[in-house]
Nucleic acid binder design. Sequence first.
RNA 1: GCGGGUGUGGUGGAAUGGCAGACACGUUGGUCUUAGGAACCAAUGGGCAACCGUGCAGGUUCGAAUCCUGUCACCCGCACCA
Length: 800
Amino acid sequence: MRYEFKTIDKKWQKRWEEAHAFEAQSDRSKPKYYALVEFPYPSGEGLHIGHPRPYTAMDIIARKKRMQGYNVLFPIGWDAFGLPTENYAIKHKVHPADVTRKNIAHFTEQIKALGLSFDWSREINTSDPSYYKWTQWIFLQLFKRGLAYKKEMAVNFCTSCKVVLANEEVVGGVCERCGSEVVRKIKSQWMLKITDYAQRLIDDLEGLDFIERVKAQEINWIGRSEGAEVRFATTAGDDVVVYTTRPDTLFGATYMVIAPEHELVARWKERLANAGEVEAYQKEAARKSDFERTELVKEKTGVRLEGISAINPVNGKEIPIFISDYVLATYGTGAIMAVPAHDTRDWEFAKKFGLPIVEVVAGGDVENEAFTDVETGKLVNSSFLNGLEVKEAKAKIIEWLTEKGLGVRKVNYKLRDWVFSRQRYWGEPVPLVYCEKCGWVPLPEESLPLTLPEVEHYEPTDTGESPLAKNEAWVNTTCPHCGGPAKRETDTMPNWAGSSWYFLRYCDPHNNGALASKEALDYWMPVDWYNGGMEHVTLHLLYSRFWAKFLYDIGVLSCKEPYQKRTAHGMILGENGEKMSKSRGNVINPEVVIADYGADGLRLYEMFIGDFEKSAPWSQASIKGCKRFLDRVAGLTDLIRGEGVTPSLEASFHKTIKKVTEDIDAMKFNTAIAAMMALVNEIYEAGTLTRNEMKTLITLLCPFAPHLAEELNEYLGETTLLSLAPWPTYDEAKTKDERVEIAVQIGGKLRGTVSVAASASREEMLDAAKADPKIKELLQGKTIVKEIAVPVKLVNFVVR
RNA sequence: GCGGGUGUGGUGGAAUGGCAGACACGUUGGUCUUAGGAACCAAUGGGCAACCGUGCAGGUUCGAAUCCUGUCACCCGCACCA
């Protein structure tokens, strides 16, 4: 048969749709399998060549599970709120909803052209009021339980998008989306207390099947550290609490540093001999963005608070207090005890300001550099801690501090609360009103959704207020609590809100009475396998795990973790090995590839391109090999003779079924395809195969190249969909060859091969090797010291 | 600095203690063709050879791309987090 992909692709896509072939079934007695891909943001750019890689991979997994008898949920939807759409709407003066609708239509067409087995009956859209009703509902539950709160704070403000960004959205000091400068601004923001879940977000990773780098990156981001808070008295009367991970070095604390924003600085102003200098430094620090502050890593700056000292609680010594921007107000207590002998930063600062460096852990040369090793070295100059190892000293000093009421063991996290407000139009409205009498009041749940009102302009204001603030008719409302006048919150939710729970909606997408029914959630959740990009590990993955845990706490979900397994795909790079981008001119358009090689050609190549988890450069030349393979599979129809088993191919078939089955589960798609290619090569060498062998081959191929597989299935006279046929099984015993070539080594070096029965004993293998004329000659006159025989693999003679 | 990862032919990549380079691309030669950016056949790590080859240097082992020690280079994430 000739492979005419242009007609075949469309024909089968239509058949699958008409048959509702890939819709998840309501029969909950069957074992379920929930395969999930990250739903796309429907940008105006259309589908990128990178999208089909994870989609096809999970499609292969979903298709195989379906063929293995599972009730499979493999859904798709749209992460439709977002800045690019809003920016486009502003520029072209169209409603963001219209832009979104158009983009989704384009994406849908492109995705359908790939022949992915998505269940389109469960399609969702985060900007649909029937969806964001439940995003708002979840927010209200968070609010009611004190996990959403409003806070005046310094935030990251993008000068171009005119919007507040979460810490996670600031990359290298610039806006993650547009690359513009980010500055600090004081704003009142809605915050979500993700920090309450920090420990659980670490602990519950255990037992999950997440790839190592995802786990490591999440743990690293949460940034747990163990130490102690220690209270220092001051000559000003107020105490200062510092956080340290090295309480063992307390005797070496020769000065103290507090953050420029620390509240005590303002309180002490009148007592300072150099108040002017201190104030100037505070102003300078406040002006700088986070990026500028961290960029000036080379040189430490700071100002001493003249006239006030702290008192080291262990030895009563007075030590100077500085303010410096190397201490962050937002971490720990915003104050540190400085131990220059054993902390690199403190050491640099001490050298610059001529402060004393007192060694308290022996083992380094503290005049030349800080000695930070905690494994070796014993405590010195530390009274009752002398002679102890660091670990012992830590325990002992904490015990001592606790007894005296001077300190306490303390755990800190780098993770900060989630800034949940955006001063933008195209997002979920926050369902709260502000009443002068009652404060922030939630809207009644039955009034949800609070829909986005029409506005004339979508531009954010220069003051950083949301465009919604200009719509007075909408803003002014009544308080649901007291009935008095109230104003609506005009900030909207961030893009991450809708994507933090979308996988739950898929379980029951048309439910009007709940975000999903308990029965549906209990059956489908957790997601069995979720694949996505590494760029979402510290954002989407962490946020959605947090929401899932919250929903677990309030009884909506029955599982503590939403995803049982998480993998990540590598990027597809341009032919030159660089990231694909318009500006580099190395972008490949999936539509063009499909036009030239068919959907199956693209699918197969994206899976064959290399290790799924690693980036790989696109190659216009290599894709031809995949197309050639599909042509060769189609051409096999000429070789079909009868039914049954072709003896010379039997073992190869069993081996290939085994290999493909196992490789799909391990995401080793490239080697699975290689195995099928090798089998096809063998069949051509044999020059013949049976009808049922052909059927086995196309069944194996079906998850990878479903259109061609279905067409060949029809060619074989079948009338039912191959996509729903049972997955082939293999007989382990038949995957083994009867005779095998084994390697013969002398002194570990390959000297020849001999053919033996696979079941050959040690003696038989050794005898066969010795009987080989070449080996015989090489062993002539040598004394064999040792003989090694590994069944099916090799024999090795160690000689003298 | 901390955390994770990678290093193998001309190229993408196989092989996780047992015949390095599966499978594919490319290249070379050939067949068929009016033609070929088609198809098919053959060869293809290097070296005339003995031999040499998985970033580099050691080690363990009968045997190492694979395990251990050290080292270099590159990529990703975080980064003044006390």
